[in-house]
Design a protein around this nucleic acid. Structure first.
Lengths: 341, 341
DNA sequence: GTTAGCACTCACTTGGGTTGAGTGCTAATC
DNA sequence: GATTAGCACTCAACCCAAGTGAGTGCTAAC
């Protein structure tokens, strides 16, 4: 269904006004504010048409119109132009990233907080599980009497560690020799290979160290299993409170409940192919609790896995700004990760 | 100022009722509910006395009384008995901790979420900066062409790492020899010693590797500087919304603003000696924004540093439950850390 | 096809009247 | 002297009715 230019112009004006004010938009107001060169009565006729088509709706007869979810959908699909980050903002983000590059957690935090500040919505970032598949390097380090640390560097460049108990009699030298054997046997091998390997070999080679070996293998197993849930980082929850649609406490509670439960949020998000910015409006969302929210989402790549980044806000969202910003942020993350990892 | 038994009894009844209902408590209601064997009129007289002493106040003349902040303070200091965790809860927490022990971040998250669930308030945990003072072990690991990882294990048993660039020509063997030199020279040394050391020695020993050495030293410096801000973990924000005193959006905004800004929260918290549970009521708080909140706080020890754990909620708080729970949780954290680290 | 005019709708605001929980005071009682 | 019953008084909260105004739909004129 395509609209003529005038209808589009009117629809857009109403959307912009409504997004700004959160109030139903009347015919007179829209004509004045946007310098449409037609009378309010004409606009009223057009509005009636748009309402028939399902793009507008009326809260009650004597109020103005508000865009329906289909209205927003049409706008987003057929009319919207994304407002990407301006150069200053891009520079700022790049600077933030560089300053925090040393600490992955900080990078994520910073991006999230940047995103929520720029869009004024709540941002979320999902960091994918980095699969632990292949060893690069294994190292045993003594920590204190009776304790040692197993450090594993994976092919994906991730560092993981576990503490293990060792007999008190074990010395740094012993650990060193275990290191050598392990690295000789396993460096570059797949985890699944380790599981298949006849561990007797290792044990034979390092007689008397059976207990330690078992501890190490246990630790590695544990690392592999536990190699991390997807992590969810939320930022700018406060922004929700500024949206008049959420001044109702009950609604707010539902939303915060979603945001507090990582798993719920993850379920809510649509799969993303990674490249495209994906916009989900109101009732398009999977979960009923989120039927008054919209989500703007994009994917980024990290160590071959896909992470997700986006914002969540009211249906009455500045989609143009949100989509542009998420798109820009996504690109910059990809770039920075490419460059430094 | 000490109160006679009857006044104490009345004060306590009013506090319990008010905490439960969030409504001003009338003389008749309190007599009925708590089976006081005196008449409402007598209670009224006593209430007038308590009001004169500053322990009660009246929102307006024709309403019941509510405990003043001094009233809560008196109760907390002179009358309150802490409700510690029951055995089931202790067991549950211990189980949670053991299950997550492998991953420090998870431990913190779990404790926070446990604390907020049990108390029904918002919990916070501050993880102190683990000072990086002395090397235990340094290790260079090749990651991919042109990249290596510097891994440092500190005396406090913390693992830190940084990626560095290395010339592509460098081989695993070269890194190994650097490792040896570094460990020989620095293992067990203080960081400050490293800074004082004439690094020429290192460079001489490893000719041609100057650039790498510089990179490593830079990374170590960076680790030391950056060895981590205190981390703040908040849980159960949602609980705030259930408190009637925060149904006013403006108040809620202020509170969430505090909770969202780590630094503000850290400023707000009083120093804690570590052992005692510290209770701050309403206007006793440093920050004006928190003058309607109370904080129950205790310290725990981790690697010789003091971390802080507690809950934050309305002045109308179940101090007995909150203080008992925080106390129990603090103890369990200490125990578990002692045992496993 | 567009526009001016007009009657109509209906959420929102305002203000007065009522209600009821709770108080303070006084006088009687223990 | 402490306690209690009785009673007049206070005041937030609730309810309701009238008034207000932004906005609409329809019709007739341009």
């Amino acid at each position: 269904m395509t609209l003529d230019e005038r209808k589009k112009r009117i629809l857009e004006s109403i959307i912009k006004d409504y997004v700004e004010t959160a109030e139903p938009v009347g015919s007179r107001a829209v004509v004045k504010k946007h310098n449409l060169r037609i009378s309010a009565a004409t606009v009223r006729n057009e509005m009636a048409d748009l309402e028939d088509m399902g793009y507008l709706e009326q809260p009650h007869t004597s109020a103005g119109r508000i865009p329906s979810e289909s209205g927003f959908r049409y706008y987003v699909d057929c009319m919207m132009e994304r407002e990407n980050l301006v150069d200053d903002e891009v520079e700022l983000l790049q600077k933030i990233l560089k300053d925090n590059l040393q600490d992955w957690d900080n990078v994520i935090q910073s991006i999230g907080s940047f995103l929520s500040q720029v869009t004024r919505y709540t941002s979320f970032i999902i960091v994918p599980t980095i699969k632990f598949d292949e060893f690069k390097y294994i190292q045993l380090v003594p920590v204190e009497k009776g304790k040692a640390m197993v450090i594993v560097v994976t092919d994906t460049g991730v560092l993981m560690h576990r503490r293990i108990d060792v007999p008190e009699s074990v010395e740094s030298k012993d650990l060193q020799s275990i290191n050598e054997v392990f690295n000789r046997l396993f460096a570059g091998k797949k985890l699944s290979d380790l599981r298949k390997t006849d561990l007797q070999t290792v044990r034979d080679e390092l007689k008397l160290r059976k207990k330690i070996i078992d501890h190490i293998l246990e630790a590695i197993d544990n690392l592999a299993d536990n190699s991390g849930e997807e992590k969810v980082v939320i930022s700018g929850i406060l922004n929700m409170l500024n949206e008049p649609e959420f001044k109702d406490l009950e609604k707010l509670k539902k939303i915060l409940a979603i945001l507090e439960a990582d798993t719920v949020l993850k379920n809510l998000l649509p799969e993303t192919s990674g490249e495209k910015v994906d916009i989900t409006i109101g009732r398009e969302n999977r979960l009923d609790e989120a039927k008054e929210m919209s989500i703007v989402l994009a994917g980024y790549k990290v160590f071959g896995e896909v992470g997700r980044v986006g914002v969540i806000g009211p249906v009455r969202m500045e989609y143009w700004k949100a989509a542009g910003t998420v798109e820009s942020v996504r690109t910059i993350i990809d770039e920075v990760l490419q460059k430094y990892y």
